[in-house]
Amino acid sequence: MNTLLEIKNLKINFKTFEGEKQALDIEHLQLGRGETLGLVGESGAGKTVLALAVLGLLPAGQSVIHSGEIRFDGEDLLQKSRRELEENYRGRRIAMIFQDPMSTLNPVFTVGQQLGNVIQRHRGLKGADLKNASIQTLELVRLSDAESALQKYPHELSGGQRQRVIIAIALSCGAELLIADEPTRNLDVTIQAGILKLMDELQKTLGLSVLFIANNMGLVNVICKHIGVLYRGKVVELGPSRAVIENHKHPYTEALISAIPREKSEKLKFAAASLRSETKRGCPYYARCPLAVESCLEQNPNLIPISDGHRAACILLREGGGR
């Protein structure tokens, strides 16, 4: 596999008044060219932190990157200066789509200005060329009446239209990697489907590599070939989507899957908020795990190989997936 993004031993802490708190601890995660990886986990699991870390956008005063590498096309992004990131990576080779289309567009500039600024920045186009490129990009995301949309301010667009504009800006300069941070979270369900379909198509036609972040297993399964489950900053299960969904091994993955709404007859299960008091030792899922035993407190479990590419982190598992 031709690896595009590879994350190794990445440890990120947040500064709080009570000292540093671990936000992310990722041993190894990779994404091949043209591949799609979905990261699932509840809010606070570190999904967005990971996305922002790739682009070097974590707020400097509040977070500390302790160790690790984020390799993009072989280059360690953590070693790049802000200027290098601005000129060669952000918006140009790596693009990001944010959660909330309502707040991601600047309210006091028109769509044309916001899109145009980015195209001008990375493709150096001006005047009529710039306008044509802008219209083309908006047509790529199927925004109806692209030309008049350029004159509009964000508040004049609907949520779905705004998300299309945001995707257009992100993909306007030929990015290879697209990081989508819960792009459909704040949209109506019918609009969600449209945006997901669009992203799926764009991924295929443009050959994009996609890091898709969501808190919903069902969504990720639609878009991604691979799934990583994140819990409290750690990858607890990772593998091809089919294997993770059908043959999940980690109790947290099971909780996530049983939370996907299905037919009426089936009861919706939900993960217990907490069964025991939180501990700092051992397995991060200990407090909420229905299967936990004494020995879970002894060590933080490593990922154990189950089948080809499928791994899960639980000490109750043996290699190959037996308990």
Partner: peptide
């Protein structure tokens, strides 16, 4: 605001 983080993610120069 999100739109500032977004503007940075597009690679626009910090001064801008």
């Amino acid at each position: 605001e999100d739109y500032i983080t977004a503007a940075r993610s597009y690679g626009l120069p910090e001064t801008r």
